[in-house]
Write a protein that binds this DNA or RNA. Structure first.
Lengths: 155, 155
DNA sequence: CGAAATTCATTCGCATGCTAATGGTTTCCG
DNA sequence: CGGAAACCATTAGCATGCGAATGAATTTCG
């Protein structure tokens, strides 16, 4: 649990916790942030075409699934409505996607790849596979399996 | 269609990669982002005092190490100069830290906790320990060890 | 000593990422 | 049918987070 083995009068773990025993470097969130930073750097270096992790995720999902409503695309890529909107706007500004109203649902805007978007996605997906490879490079094949399985359970 | 039906005879993943075999959900970066999102939500819910992960990291390091120059604080908390500046500015606006020129180096601005900052840090550190606990809750004690060790190697 | 290299803080631009609020549309169900 | 509930897209505001550029101060080294 949280506190050490020492006794106290209240039994409240918050009050017996010794702040000097806390090491930022050992906290899951802190290490997670550093691993994300390293991955982001590898990604930026390897992907090309002005893509970012979220922009790429959107392209990859549209490539796989075809036209999707904006919110559905957000769900597929783990982004909320406010975030996916900005991503789609920027992809549209680069003419990698276009949007059109969903004829069967007046609330929805369908998002789909343009020809250029499809070409870039087809090129970026193999690059992204290499980026995953490079990110996991410090681990053995067996460790990668273990790591991804544990990470998935936290996600 | 994209991948075609050709088989991969050489086993060279670089030249024969089939985009349709790519699964975004299995990529380290994508899962990492989701785990970070979950941790951020747990953090926001548990920390209080208007703290954020980066703000808390800065407080915790100042609490541990005393006055530091801004850049040094950034290194201790894995933030670059541009990022730590914004964090320090916002902590200063809330009177949790103050800055003063380093008498021995005219380039540096020393950052240190105020009394209020020290109080809030002392309260936040035990809360952060519980947040780490909750983040890792889906894993057994043994799995946590493994996970953190592998994650550290990627950071 | 003094020029070059480094360090430090700052600023700008761009891109995430979240919450909350809003208004329009569709679906659900009594 | 018709109102409540749910869903969709958008906007505003706040906070990260990074690269690149700038100018001042310090350190390094020939």
């Amino acid at each position: 649990m949280v506190g050490g083995g020492d006794l106290n009068e209240t039994g409240d773990p918050l009050e017996e916790f010794d702040p000097s025993a806390y090491r930022l470097e050992d906290q899951a969130g802190f290490i997670l942030r550093q691993a994300s930073q390293r991955h982001a750097a590898i990604f930026a270096e390897g992907i090309g075409d002005g893509l970012t992790p979220t922009r790429f995720a959107a392209l990859a999902k549209l490539f796989e699934l075809g036209a999707l409503s904006q919110n559905e695309l957000g769900r597929q890529t783990a982004m909320d409505g406010a975030t996916i909107k900005g991503v789609v706007d920027r992809l549209r500004a680069r003419a990698l996607v276009r949007t059109r109203p969903d004829p069967s649902d007046g609330r929805r805007h369908l998002v789909e790849l343009t020809r250029k978007g499809r070409e870039i996605a087809a090129r970026a997906i193999p690059a992204a596979a290499l980026i995953t490879e490079k990110t996991l490079e410090p681990l053995s094949a067996r460790e990668r399996e273990t790591f991804l399985e544990l990470l998935r359970r936290l996600g």
